[in-house]
Design a protein around this nucleic acid. Structure first.
Lengths: 293, 293
DNA sequence: TTCGATGTACTCGATTCGAGTATAAATGGA
DNA sequence: TCCATTTATACTCGAATCGAGTACATCGAA
């Protein structure tokens, strides 16, 4: 049998946090993620993707982690490619400290809550959420499986909201026909929004047992800045004393001799990530607290 | 630029547990994993791999989960393909209830501890482990980073053994040149042993927060059988009272009216996995206890 | 100097978890 | 028959963790 495979596509979810907003790097007016074909000149998948990101966004990337490999049929059944050739996309999650981007394809940072407004639970519940759940309950009808899924994914009927289930919520809304137009969240080209949801899910899960947050932090930072970053990513409001307790119990950071300046309120001590502990925590797991309010 | 990509390879780690041994399906006398190229006739990556598994092992597969996508350069730099074309392999983890296999390629089940003898900590520590750590300490010399890695990965100097780090341990041993020959564990063709290590790592991590174990269990089982299965997978010895406490707290199983027979000792009640809870636990996370001894 | 915002230190109770102990019920061999 | 063995099952106890709340300190700015 002949292999008529289309080129393999590398695609990146590039995340940063600025002004307490989690942001994702987009192209073409915010409707696409950086991507490009894997070519035989690339030494590896990672280095190939790095080259594409540099070219399209002019932004250097530090941390880069493989997410998932999508095939067309697994992706969007409505795609024009579905019946033709099988395209394979390998998705990666990259973490950077935000800088201005200038590259081909009009790179721009957008808050990822533009695409998933229902995922931001930092202050109360998002406005759109009641309308979404109402529509979902109608969609579920009296099918017990559907009702159970809606309840667990959206924290209804006494179930707790689980911030990690970004992808599953998006897929449920997709099934229920709520993400076709622009009514709930900003759309993206083909299935890029689903790939973004995959990345957010992974990142929200990962900050709980791995010190990846520090990839997003500047050299030195206050503990509140660190907390606000974790809150931005997880979409949850955290309990300040508990957050600080965990951070120093884990000995993830060490004091610098400096203090913050400029902002109002009492100046805070500046901390830096402990470089010596890096490898060790990467392996054995550093827990970040995610208690509510 | 021309794309001279070799076909995409699908590769499976098929796991089962019988006689308290975790087993993996192999071909060609235990030196290779089931695999085959992704073809344009396949409807999806998963269904393509299912077809290859059926053909090569004659074994039906239920649960199948994507693991990781490897490119040659990411894999084994010594490979003959490294300088030629870029071959991509997509690895999957499949869970089955073991049956006799009969297909092309001489399918056979092997305990995965044949390939990783140092990973079985159910009774004392494995014999080979002292020899391995001795060699690693020599390799580390006085490089503090290397010493730290060895300590954390192999539970030395007061660090605890973390059973999930199968892949990281294998890669450290690879760097130290301990897995070239057959001295430590049985070798496999090309980098199949590393892919197997990836699968074991993922499965050991996953049984802690997801009820995937039940994919490996028969219809009804005693709580001790369930515990022995978890122990086989994790390579740890568990505390019986605590294990049972967690199982019924989680309400993962329900009693059948039957009791076990045949074995010596007091007959045990038979349980079955609660089908109603399936979807819910899949989403929100079911914890299995992994306390030592 | 008072307000507002932030930083920092403590307390308390609920839950979880590792570890140990004790007892019950069956089998099989002496 | 009875006892040793094996497995099942129930209970206890202390340490650690975690969510939640309270109190107080310290700065800048109005």
């Amino acid at each position: 049998m002949l292999n008529e495979l289309a080129p393999i596509e590398l695609i990146a979810i590039l995340a940063a946090v600025t002004d307490n907003q989690p942001r994702v790097m987009t192209l073409r007016g915010g409707e696409a993620l950086p991507s490009g074909p894997f070519e035989s000149s690339h030494r590896s998948l990672q280095s190939g993707l790095r080259a594409w990101i540099e070219a399209q966004t002019g932004h250097p990337v530090g941390y880069l982690e493989q997410l998932y490999t999508f095939a067309d049929k697994d992706r969007d059944p409505r795609s024009e490619y579905a019946a033709a050739s099988q395209r394979i996309s390998i998705g990666y999650l990259g973490l950077v400290r935000e800088q201005d981007a200038a590259g081909a394809g009009h790179p721009a940072w957008h808050s990822w809550y533009q695409y998933f407004p229902w995922e931001d639970h930092r202050n109360r519940s998002p406005e759109q959420l009641p309308r979404i759940t109402k529509r979902l309950i109608v969609w579920a009808g009296d099918d017990p499986m559907r009702i159970q899924r809606v309840d667990y994914l959206f924290g209804l009927n006494g179930k707790a909201w689980n911030e990690e289930l970004v992808l599953q919520r998006y897929e449920l809304m997709y099934e229920a026909g709520l993400v076709d137009g622009a009514e709930f969240g900003r759309p993206m080209a083909s299935d890029n929004r689903r790939i973004l949801a995959t990345g957010i899910s992974r990142l929200r899960a990962k900050i709980k047992y791995s010190p990846v947050v520090f990839e997003l932090m500047p050299e030195s930072f206050t503990l509140l800045q660190l907390q606000r970053t974790v809150e931005a990513l997880s979409g949850l409001h955290l309990h300040k004393p508990n957050f600080r307790r965990q951070i120093d119990q884990q000995e993830l950071v060490e004091e610098t001799s400096e203090v913050s300046s400029g902002a109002s309120g009492r100046p805070a001590r500046l901390f830096r990530y402990r470089p010596a502990i890096l490898e060790a925590r990467m392996l054995s797991g550093a827990r970040l607290p995610l208690s509510r309010s």
